[in-house]
Amino acid sequence: MQQRCKVLAWITVIWGLTSAMAVAENSAPSIVLQSTTSTANSGLYEHLLPQFYTETGIRVHVVAVGTGQAIKNAQNGDGDVLLVHAQSAEEAFVEAGYGVARFDVMYNDFVIVGPADDPAGVTGLADPVAALQKIADTGSVFASRGDDSGTHKKERSLWWATRAQPDAASGRWYRETGSGMGATLNVAVGMGAYTLTDRATWISFKNKGEHVIHVEGTQALFNQYGVILVNPERHARVKAAEGQAFVDWIVSDRGQQAIADYRLDGQQLFFPNATVK
């Protein structure tokens, strides 16, 4: 019996060692990029990162969460670079000393999607604020991220400009999913709700059902992405050199071109607009 216990113990140890070795194999230089679901789900990183890797030999591990959580994780030092889309929150992050500096990387835009029969009658409205007002007035169901993400912040700022009080209607026509963009789109499609989404996620989303874009193409729906190196003075374990290499690359001509080259179903999802070179 003891013999067999020993055998079991050894199997455990050997298994543990092989696991550890398999982990160690991945010890090429790497950084953790705290980013958003919208960029990750669209497939952009699968397009960009192999190119970055061949040029620099640095692997980028993308953690895709909402912008709010990404910033929070970066504040804890659990990431080397932040690539998100909530400019004021990003600036506050740098201001507080968590980040070195913020650079514009690229943009696309938000769109309001909803059921094709458009119960609120918002199709073609130029002003997203007016559209939301009509959704509220007609009591049409609206699915909100409700997760402090960049998209959610944008949506809140649009609601703020209306006279409607969505919080008072929470649980009735205003439904907060507390989930990522994809999950929220699934919910919206499932219950015939309107929702605000970034265009990249919408184009790459495969479960559109009967939903279509109703409101798009105005300055108010502009969606800017920025990149920030997490401050190594704040968190000593930040891989500053590798992280800086990524920041430098993505705002460089090569990185910007790579972003412009990424197309899904023939459509360009992100538009590079870095100003530093």
Partner: peptide
């Protein structure tokens, strides 16, 4: 849920669901 590093069956399922 990092691709090729910490992506397992369940997180991959969650991701594909999120992508629709």
């Amino acid at each position: 849920n990092i691709a090729n590093l910490t992506r397992v069956m369940t997180t991959a399922i969650a991701l594909e669901t999120a992508k629709g």
